[in-house]
Design a protein around this nucleic acid. Structure first.
Ligand code: SF4
Ligand code: SF4
Lengths: 155, 155
DNA sequence: TTAATTTAGGACAAAAGAGTCTTAAATATA
DNA sequence: TATATTTAAGACTCTTTTGTCCTAAATTAA
């Protein structure tokens, strides 16, 4: 997988939070139910995002998590970087440790070009962009088969 | 990692074989020593490439492995596809199973564009291209630190 | 024919990723 | 204060990936 499972779950949950940015804290249990992600696993991932400063959390009744910044200001680069690190944006294709621009491997130049496309995509896409796609075009964040079995729960 | 370890090792070994395409069968032990890859692990990977038809193998003294086709005709897409499958070329970024063009997620369009860049790079790069880079520009296939400790073994 | 070389194949172990579960701490409300 | 709600933290299990090791089969050469 290009992104780890944790990262994908973290991204989906972040978009969900962006879609509900008008509300107060949102309990992780609600996110996990709506997005069909294991509650405990998602909790761990969101704890990480909280530690990295992307989310704020609040314990107790009416508690939950919320985005620290408006969805427009949160680029998905930050979400990915917080969970998976920046290897996908800066790493190499042949994975030769210790190489650099002075002694690049045969794929360095062409790979760097493509890698920058990936980087740019993640740098220029915000949670608001993704949330807008979901709202405007009636898109979805959960598996289509799960949608079919419970269409009322569409997010 | 974008590509699995197995895939990276398989690619490096393939480029090594391209660099020695004029020779007969090359023992896996030689490849593993020159490229500092575990012999037994590399053997497994090259067995897979042999099963997929990218290499031919021959047992016994003077045996080893060799490319089935001239390096110019082997695109690295095929090597990656043989080892890691085509997920990197066809897979999605949010990993929602069961989605499609009819019901794309918010990142589908932009991601498809970037993904095609990756695909094109791997479709248009041959083992000969990589081997040429190694020969012409004095590049390398092994970790630079390993080079420093044994510069005579440079490949 | 015997010994040496080399790939084939599969069992096994270690490490990392993914996921589950339990307990503790914080908070709100009755 | 007591109880319910909710995140925090860490132990634990399961699966996949990565890597090691041993034996079998094919081939060459003495
Ligand atoms: S030279 Fe570039 S592509 Fe090649 S191994 Fe190094 S960072 Fe990766
Ligand atoms: S719509 Fe496209 S990018 Fe989105 S989950 Fe499906 S394949 Fe992936």
């Amino acid at each position: 997988m290009l992104l780890s499972k944790s990262c994908v779950y973290g991204l989906r949950a972040s978009v969900f939070l962006a879609l509900h940015a008008d509300r107060e804290y949102i309990p992780i249990s609600e996110i996990s139910e709506k997005l069909k992600i294991s509650f405990h696993f998602l909790t761990k991932i969101l704890q990480l995002l909280t530690q990295k400063g992307l989310l704020v959390s609040y314990r107790g009744p009416h508690g939950g998590v919320a985005l620290t910044r408006p969805p427009k200001e949160v680029i998905i680069y930050d979400v990915v970087n917080a969970i998976d690190g920046d290897e996908i944006f800066t790493g190499c294709i042949l994975s030769l440790p210790g190489c650099g621009n002075q002694t690049p491997c045969p794929m360095h130049e062409s790979w760097t070009l493509v890698r920058n496309k990936i980087r740019t995509l993640f740098l220029t896409t915000s949670l608001a962009d993704l949330a807008k796609g979901v709202k405007d075009n009636n898109l979805r964040l959960v598996d289509i088969e799960q949608l079919i079995s419970a269409p009322a729960d569409k997010v």
